[in-house]
């Protein structure tokens, strides 16, 4: 079986999350959806347009189809955004490592997301919520450009806040309309909230610039390198560590990543 050949899958449903983010619910036409863990990615093809590495935003243990929450940025994601339910795409994966949830037993979890970076965190948060008792307190910090750019509003506003001992803290870069919440960039917001590093693991995912400043803020708050987990995104073509593209030093993001602890990242050349 050639790992570069995707399964043909059907878009079953499309959820419009924000003006430029849609969640695609996808089921393979033949056979089963592959097994995957939170943080893992898959290559999604629009035939004739190309492939893009997307993080999986659904949670495998909940069963059900694959979900990809996709921001419209380029050719492939643009083509996906023009697709409709019933359209056929290609999916191959899962690729990359996953969040080391096993290591976090008993730990408080601090999820810090920005923009579409909430997609892999959503998979993770739902995964962890399903085994809620294994962990301590949950805090979800999430920021977007504007209130209308907040993804997964149902979960953000309804499901997660209602869960046991979960704090959801939202912020936007710029308020509009009825927004009553915080207006601040994620790193500033994080510093203002000032979560204690004590017994806490911080997991952050977002645009590169946000990650950069969030890491600095976490350090300021006293988090150690091992307490910080993040995901990286680099241009990928094959997803299987063969195309020679997504390396950071000797590591390949598609195989060795996308999840890295800050301790691991510091070992790598600063080229990501």
């Amino acid at each position: 079986m050639n790992p570069l050949v995707p399964q043909v899958a059907t878009i079953k449903n499309i959820v419009v999350e924000t003006p430029d983010v849609r969640t695609f619910v996808v089921e393979p036409d033949h056979g089963q959806t592959f097994a995957y863990r939170p943080g893992q990615c898959a290559m999604v093809s629009v035939f004739g347009v190309g492939e893009a590495m997307l993080s999986i935003s659904s949670t495998a243990r909940r069963g059900g189809p694959l979900e990809f929450s996709v921001k419209r940025v380029g050719r492939v994601t643009g083509a996906l955004h023009e697709a409709e339910p019933g359209h056929r795409i290609g999916v191959r994966g899962p690729y990359g490592n996953h969040f080391p949830v096993e290591d976090w037993a008993g730990s408080n979890l601090l999820f810090i997301g920005g923009g579409i970076g909430l997609a892999p965190l959503r998979a993770l948060i739902n995964h962890c919520l399903d085994e809620r008792r294994r962990y301590g307190k949950f805090d979800i910090i999430y920021g977007a450009r504007s209130p209308q750019d907040l993804c997964f509003q149902g979960e953000l506003m309804e499901n997660w806040p209602r869960a046991e001992d979960v704090g959801v803290h939202l912020t936007v870069d710029a308020a509009d309309g009825d927004w009553k919440g915080a207006v601040a960039l994620v790193p500033h917001f994080l510093e203002k909230l000032g979560p204690s590093p004590e017994g806490t693991t911080a997991i952050t995912c977002g645009p590169p610039i946000m990650i950069k400043y969030t890491l600095a803020s976490l350090k300021k708050l006293g988090f150690s390198d091992h307490q910080i987990v993040t995901t990286l995104e680099l241009k990928m073509q094959c997803g299987i560590g063969k195309c020679g593209r997504c390396n950071i030093g000797s590591k390949y993001v598609c195989v060795d990543g996308p999840v890295f602890t800050y301790a691991q990242l510091k070992e790598l050349p600063q080229e990501y």
């Binding site: 492939v76 680099l234 241009k235 020679g244 593209r245 080229e271």
Partner: peptide, 20 residues
């Protein structure tokens, strides 16, 4: 699948404009 070259400036250019 075709050869690519790590010396080309767009080798790592992503759709959103990020280039590592």
């Amino acid at each position: 699948r075709g050869w690519d070259c790590c010396q080309f400036k767009d080798f790592l250019l992503m759709a959103g404009g990020h280039n590592a």
